[in-house]
Every structure is written in structure tokens, then in C-alpha cells.
Simulated assay, not measured.
Amino acid sequence: MLATLLAVAGTLLGALVSGLLQHHLARAARAESQAVRDAATTAITATYAIRDATDPTHLDALRQAALTTHDHLVEEAARHLTP
């Protein structure tokens, strides 16, 4: 009887630990995706800002900002896709 109770308790504990690990991994995956989405949104915003340039100097500054955000997006995507 005691062996049966221990076996059931062990099975339930194993299922609980497995569920908690899956929950943690899913949450981490969502966080990694949210970082990529934020980087993409920032890159898009910086790219569209180029249209509002007032002079060549301002245009160059906006272009550099767009390139920097693009690089950040590529780094975030690579970090997310690397196993």
C-alpha cells in the first residue's frame, strides 16, 4: 500500500515539474519574440522618419538612426533564432 502511494505521489510530482518547465519555456519564448517585435517596430519607425527630413544633414542623421535600428533588429532576430 505504501509503495503504491509513493508511486502515485512520484507520478504526480513528475507531472507537476514537467508542467512548470513547459510553462517557463513558453514564457521565455514569448519574451524573446516580444524583443524581436519591439526591435522591428523601432526599425520601421526609424525608416519612416526619413520622410520627414528637413535638410541633407537631418536626412543623414535619420538615415544613420535607421541603419542602427536595422542592425539591432538583425541582432535580436539572430539571438532569437540561434539554438
Score class of each variant (00 low, 15 high):
residue 1 M to R: 10
residue 2 L to E: 14
residue 3 A to K: 10
residue 4 T to L: 14
residue 6 L to S: 08
residue 7 A to T: 10
residue 8 V to E: 02
residue 11 T to Q: 08
residue 11 T to P: 02
residue 11 T to S: 15
residue 13 L to P: 06
residue 14 G to D: 00
residue 15 A to S: 09
residue 17 V to K: 02
residue 18 S to W: 07
residue 18 S to R: 07
residue 18 S to A: 13
residue 19 G to E: 03
residue 20 L to C: 03
residue 22 Q to V: 14
residue 22 Q to H: 14
residue 23 H to G: 04
residue 25 L to K: 07
residue 25 L to T: 05
residue 26 A to R: 10
residue 28 A to Q: 09
residue 28 A to H: 06
residue 31 A to T: 01
residue 31 A to M: 06
residue 36 V to P: 04
residue 37 R to V: 12
residue 37 R to T: 11
residue 39 A to W: 01
residue 39 A to Q: 01
residue 39 A to L: 02
residue 42 T to S: 12
residue 43 A to E: 07
residue 45 T to M: 11
residue 46 A to T: 02
residue 46 A to F: 01
residue 46 A to L: 11
residue 48 Y to G: 07
residue 50 I to H: 00
residue 50 I to L: 11
residue 51 R to H: 11
residue 51 R to M: 03
residue 52 D to R: 09
residue 52 D to L: 07
residue 53 A to R: 05
residue 54 T to Q: 13
residue 56 P to V: 03
residue 56 P to K: 01
residue 56 P to I: 00
residue 58 H to P: 05
residue 59 L to K: 06
residue 62 L to C: 05
residue 62 L to Y: 05
residue 62 L to H: 00
residue 63 R to K: 09
residue 63 R to D: 05
residue 64 Q to S: 14
residue 64 Q to C: 06
residue 65 A to K: 10
residue 66 A to V: 08
residue 66 A to Q: 06
residue 66 A to D: 00
residue 69 T to P: 02
residue 70 H to D: 13
residue 70 H to A: 15
residue 71 D to R: 08
residue 73 L to W: 09
residue 74 V to Y: 08
residue 74 V to S: 10
residue 74 V to G: 04
residue 74 V to F: 10
residue 75 E to I: 06
residue 75 E to H: 14
residue 76 E to G: 03
residue 76 E to K: 15
residue 77 A to L: 15
residue 77 A to H: 15
residue 78 A to K: 14
residue 78 A to L: 14
residue 79 R to I: 01
residue 80 H to A: 15
residue 80 H to D: 07
residue 81 L to I: 09
residue 81 L to K: 07
residue 81 L to D: 12
residue 82 T to L: 15
residue 82 T to R: 14
residue 82 T to H: 15
residue 83 P to Y: 03
